[in-house]
């Protein structure tokens, strides 16, 4: 498939039956734009236990450069499970603007 933005692809660009010949390209799929709330962090409270990473159904939480766990907003769907499960109440969900 040619490299085009998802809204530029025409029907002629698709392989037969919409077959995807490039493995692993689901990682390009931006699920972050489904989000109505996003996680915000008070890292002073973070004990780096990684529970939020274990619970994240999207698998989009990774330690940042300081070792604090943080969601990748390109994929985070804003479900809020991390905020609910966090022992030390690092995470607060806030409404997305706009």
């Amino acid at each position: 498939m040619p490299k085009k933005g998802e809204n530029e692809l025409t029907w002629r660009d698709l392989e037969i039956g919409g077959i995807v010949t490039e493995p692993g390209n689901a990682s390009q799929y931006q699920t972050g734009d489904w989000r109505s709330q996003k996680p915000t962090y008070d890292f002073d409270r973070c004990i780096k236990c990684g529970l939020c990473q274990l619970f994240c159904p999207e698998g989009c939480v990774e330690p940042n450069s300081d070792g604090h766990f943080e969601a990748d907003l390109y994929y985070c769907k804003g479900c809020g499970i991390c905020a609910r499960e966090c022992w030390t109440k690092v995470i607060t969900m806030v409404e997305e603007e706009g």
Partner: peptide
């Protein structure tokens, strides 16, 4: 992409 797939 669904419409494009169906039109194809």
């Amino acid at each position: 992409i669904y419409s494009e797939a169906k039109w194809a």
